[in-house]
Simulated scan of single mutants.
Amino acid sequence: MAGADLLVVISAVIFNRITGIYFPVSFMSMTPACTISTVIIYAATESSVWLTVAFTVDRFIAICCQNLKAQFCTDRTAAVVIGLVGLLSCLKSIPWYFMYEPLYIINNVPWFCNVKSSFYTSVAWTAYDWFARVLNPGLPFLLILLLNALTVRHILAASRARRRVRANSSSRENQSDPEMESRRKSIVLLFTISGSFILLWMTYVVDFLYVKITNESYFSGSNFNEPRFIRQESGNMLQLLSCCTNTCIYAVTQRKFREDLKNAANYTWKRIVKIMH
């Protein structure tokens, strides 16, 4: 997840957004470069989203399906899933390469990426566009919500049963229950993941539906105060942000990750002090 999210930041934010703003005419502005960049961005985003789904499935099995945990929650299964997600994400993103055409041709060199007019009129492109949006983020929306809801229901049911057992025990007086506290943290984590994913992708989804329902083209002009541009770019910005938040939420809430991060910081500080001495 961290690797896929880092690839999103490098490809979509650094090489696409920052380079496009501060270096508007560069190697990345050539049509082959920007089309390949687009494919990498889609593939990285796809991997980021579906690895989040895979991690949600893993947590669901580990918490709710104890009989399947030993079989599926293994390093081998994780490696296979990561490989399949990466491969399928790349294959699914290849058609985006053919969506663009050169905006200018100067000295036989194609420059910039312009969306082909057939993208808005071709039945094949329309079908693929819908297919791509259903697989990301439509299906991940549903899977994350469903699995997290089932996980929360399982945790609440187990917690009620545990409270009944403790209520009948002789050691129930005002004693803290580490197991209950752990389950409460799990519920907060699951709701945070679901909420952040849905909220940050919502503008992007609404913009896509608006464009398809109204038959409006995506913004490609120069009037950056136009509401269509603000809506479209806000959705893109929040969607890119979503690729970073889930990894941070999952990682920072893990005790082992915090310990490793603290050890890394202490080691770095000791090395700096040693070098200075």
Rank of each mutant, 00 (worst) to 15 (best):
V13I: 15
A12Q: 09
V25Q: 06
G3N: 10
V39S: 03
S26K: 08
M30N: 08
V9Y: 12
F27E: 13
I10M: 12
A43P: 05
L6K: 02
F27L: 15
G3C: 08
L7T: 11
I10W: 06
M1R: 09
I14F: 13
R17H: 08
I36D: 00
V8K: 06
T38Y: 09
I36S: 07
Y42D: 03
A44T: 11
S37F: 00
R17E: 11
T35V: 01
T45W: 07
Y42G: 00
V39L: 15
V8G: 00
I40Q: 03
L7Y: 04
I41D: 07
A43I: 06
P24H: 07
L6T: 08
M28G: 01
I21A: 09
A33R: 03
N16S: 15
F15M: 14
M30S: 10
A44R: 06
M28A: 13
I10R: 01
I36N: 09
F23R: 13
F15I: 05
S37M: 13
I10Y: 05
V39D: 01
Y22N: 04
T35P: 00
P24E: 10
I18N: 02
G20R: 03
M30C: 04
I18Y: 09
M1N: 10
T19R: 06
V25F: 07
T38N: 14
S37C: 07
V8W: 02
Y42I: 13
G20L: 07
M1W: 09
T31E: 11
S26Y: 10
F27D: 09
T45G: 12
M30F: 15
S29W: 03
V8A: 03
I36E: 00
V25E: 06
F27V: 14
G20N: 05
I21G: 00
Y42R: 04
